Simulated scan of single mutants.
Amino acid sequence: MNFKVPALNPSVRFWITLIAITWLLGAVGLGWLVKSAAILLLLLLISPLLLFWGMRLWLRWNVVQGTCPVCDFEFASLQASSVRCPSCGEVLTVRDRQFVRLTPPGTIDVTAIEVNAQVIDSPPSH
């Protein structure tokens, strides 16, 4: 009597071998080894997701997006840092999640308003 084993797909053969080794280790009393390897594999699979989520959370807390108070150019920077505006080059700092000009003490900021001059004829003198 000739007994032939059908040829298995290599991927099916891998999974059957893995299940057989796991069952054998569990039967011998080394189930803790299988559980440790499974936990390690699970941690390796979950850690990129946790890293991605943590990075997004850190960016949400530490990146400030706003406009330059001098030229109204919108850009982003890190919280509690000094940066130059990419448009006008003004040195800015981040306070209360807004960009503020970095000026020496005693400096008064003035907003200029354009006024159209109108010529008024003077009244005739008496």
Rank of each mutant, 00 (worst) to 15 (best):
L18T: 07
W58E: 07
L59C: 06
T17M: 09
A37Q: 05
S87G: 04
E74S: 15
P69Q: 13
P123E: 07
E74I: 12
P10C: 00
V70M: 06
V12Y: 03
Q118N: 06
S36I: 11
L50N: 05
L43W: 06
I19L: 15
L78F: 13
L43G: 14
P124H: 12
W23D: 02
L45S: 07
L92T: 07
D121Q: 14
P86K: 03
V34S: 00
L25R: 00
D121W: 05
V64K: 03
G54C: 02
V63H: 00
Q98S: 11
L49K: 04
L50M: 09
S82E: 14
I108F: 01
S81N: 08
R84T: 11
L50H: 05
I46H: 01
I16G: 00
F3I: 15
L8V: 06
H126T: 10
M55Y: 10
P124V: 15
I21N: 02
L42W: 09
C71H: 10
W23R: 07
V63S: 01
I46E: 01
R60H: 13
T111Q: 11
E90K: 07
A7F: 05
A38V: 13
L25G: 00
N116Q: 13
G66E: 06
Q98M: 09
L8C: 04
P10E: 13
S81M: 08
E90N: 10
W32N: 10
W53V: 12
S11C: 03
V119M: 04
V70T: 12
I108D: 02
T107I: 04
P86I: 01
G26C: 15
K4Q: 14
L49A: 09
F99S: 06
R84Y: 11
